[in-house]
């Protein structure tokens, strides 16, 4: 393994991990996603988006805690002056450590708290962006952990206000609002925050198969694993996470 930390001369605040044994498109997808975390998002600032990842990483260190032990209910777990609201911290931990235990009631309680807590942003769409940060970082960090690589360092936050871009969307079949669009339901899930949805897609394509080949070419592969072997790993992971979808 030839792992080292390299600093991009053009962007010294965004170091990347380079490993000669890993496909370049995979490393590029990881680096691009992580670098963009420091930028202002749609509903969260750059500092808040980085804090969301910090919380996801802290949650992983407490993976054995049961789902009903939300960090906001444990004395001393969240320090004063934390940049994130309590509901967001609880959501990050639940999604990171116990994704298969989320329910409609749990989601409703999170949104109720977010709507009460936030005065300048939309609770449901803020939650969607939070999911769009936490879930890809689970992929990127868990890949590094299993491969025995260092996790990517997080970028310095960039100052600026969130865009608050909110395309027309509504609650339809998901718990969260979605826009009207074609495609698999899981790809609609983040559609209420288009920038966040777009940021996730290269991560998926580099880890799995290109989006147009998911159902469009059932023989597509990288000549390492067959498509059937890819789907077996996918199914086993989904089963291990008790994911119904």
């Amino acid at each position: 393994m030839n792992t080292h930390v390299a600093h991009d001369q053009a962007a010294p605040a965004a170091p990347t991990i380079v490993d000669a044994d890993i496909r370049a498109d995979l490393q590029d997808a990881h680096a691009s996603f992580v670098e963009a975390l420091g930028d202002p998002g749609t509903w969260w600032t750059g500092a808040e988006r980085v804090a969301i990842v910090d919380e996801a990483r802290r949650a992983m260190e407490h993976a054995q805690r049961p789902p009903w032990e939300a960090p906001s209910t444990i004395t001393g777990m969240i320090g004063d002056g934390h940049p994130l609201p309590l509901w967001a911290i609880d959501a990050v931990w639940r999604i990171t450590n116990h994704p298969g235990t989320t329910t409609a009631d749990w989601y409703a309680s999170i949104i109720e708290q977010s709507d009460a807590d936030l005065t300048d942003r939309d609770g449901a769409r803020s939650y969607v962006e939070l999911v769009a940060v936490v879930a890809p970082m689970n992929a990127i960090d868990r890949f590094a952990d299993v491969m025995g690589l260092a996790r990517l360092p997080l970028p310095a936050p960039v100052a600026g206000a969130p865009s608050r871009h909110a395309p027309e969307s509504s609650v339809q079949r998901h718990w969260v609002p979605t826009v009207n669009m074609a495609g698999a339901n899981v790809f609609k899930a983040l559609s209420a925050v288009p920038a966040a949805s777009a940021a996730m897609r290269p991560v998926s394509a580099s880890h799995y198969v290109p989006e147009d080949a998911i159902v469009g070419d059932l023989t597509w592969c990288r000549d390492t694993l067959s498509r059937a072997q890819i789907e077996l790993v996918a199914a086993a992971t989904s089963m291990a996470n008790e994911c119904f979808y």
């Binding site: 879930a135 998901h174 998926s204 880890h207 119904f244």
Partner: peptide
């Protein structure tokens, strides 16, 4: 490496599906 990448991807997709209440297609 590709198998671990697929595992990682579905660590992401399952979290998106379950955190957003994504229904079966």
């Amino acid at each position: 490496t590709d198998a671990i990448a697929v595992y990682a991807n579905f660590s992401m997709m399952t979290r998106i599906a379950d955190a957003t209440g994504t229904p079966l297609d």
